[in-house]
């Protein structure tokens, strides 16, 4: 009978978790999976690995979506942005002006993504899935999406139309972050959950640096 590997001998749950994470540690020679080109932002995303879910808090009208968009600028795999905004459509030329390659980024309109787009999550056609302000998204949906992302080694962005807080946590998200444009010259980010938490400020010119 095979013996239990040494790292699993201890019955302590937290050590199990640590040892399991060590087994799945990203290989050092691989570059970061998500890269925006903004150094202060990239440092928070350096540890993101395939299968991770990142939750964003972006209320409407505050221009915060420009921050997740930064991660779709550089040689992205085939990706999909699932959106649901009342009466709003995609203003494609604005996306292109921000450096997004629309041959690789597709869009689909759905208020209930898990119910309406189940095949999309069951297959690995898209390696980046952005779920933007879903109307109905239960914790069961969250568990399903997160499990499928791990299975297919996808990265999922879940954008909420409200600011996130630590009072209501999300065990499936490896990173939780609020973003908004503050004033006319900078973006503010508040990392709620991640390997480092706290506030970051990014000058507007860095976000618009390569645009156009």
């Amino acid at each position: 009978m095979a013996s239990i590997p040494a790292q699993f001998a201890d019955s302590c749950l937290s050590e199990h978790l640590v040892s399991a994470r060590l087994l799945n540690r990203p290989r050092p020679h691989e570059g970061p999976l998500l890269r925006s080109g903004i150094e202060s932002l990239d440092s928070h995303f350096a540890s993101i690995k395939p299968g991770d879910l990142i939750e964003w808090g972006i209320p409407p009208g505050l221009n915060g979506r420009l921050i997740p968009v930064q991660f779709l600028k550089h040689a992205i795999p085939t990706s999909i942005w699932i959106y649901h905004h009342h009466g709003l459509g995609v203003f494609a030329s604005s996306w292109i002006s921000h450096g997004i390659d629309l041959q690789r980024l597709f869009f689909i309109r759905s208020a209930k993504p898990v119910r309406e787009l189940r095949p999309l999550f069951l297959e690995d056609t898209f390696k980046r899935i952005i779920i933007d302000s879903p109307k109905n998204f239960s914790s069961g949906d969250l568990a399903f999406v997160s499990q499928q992302a791990r299975k297919h080694r996808q990265i999922v962005f879940l954008i909420r139309h409200y600011f996130l807080s630590q009072k209501q946590g999300n065990p499936y998200a490896s990173l939780r972050i609020n973003t908004w444009q503050s004033g006319n010259d900078e973006f503010s980010l508040h990392v709620i959950k991640g390997h480092t938490t706290g506030k970051i400020r990014i000058p507007l010119r860095e976000v618009y640096a390569d645009d156009g």
Partner: peptide, 19 residues
């Protein structure tokens, strides 16, 4: 060069009302 044409859209929003 579509980036040159779309440069005029960098100050426009990502989503717009069709009506």
């Amino acid at each position: 060069d579509e980036y040159q044409w779309s440069a005029s859209s960098s100050q426009r929003p990502l989503f717009y009302y069709q009506a």
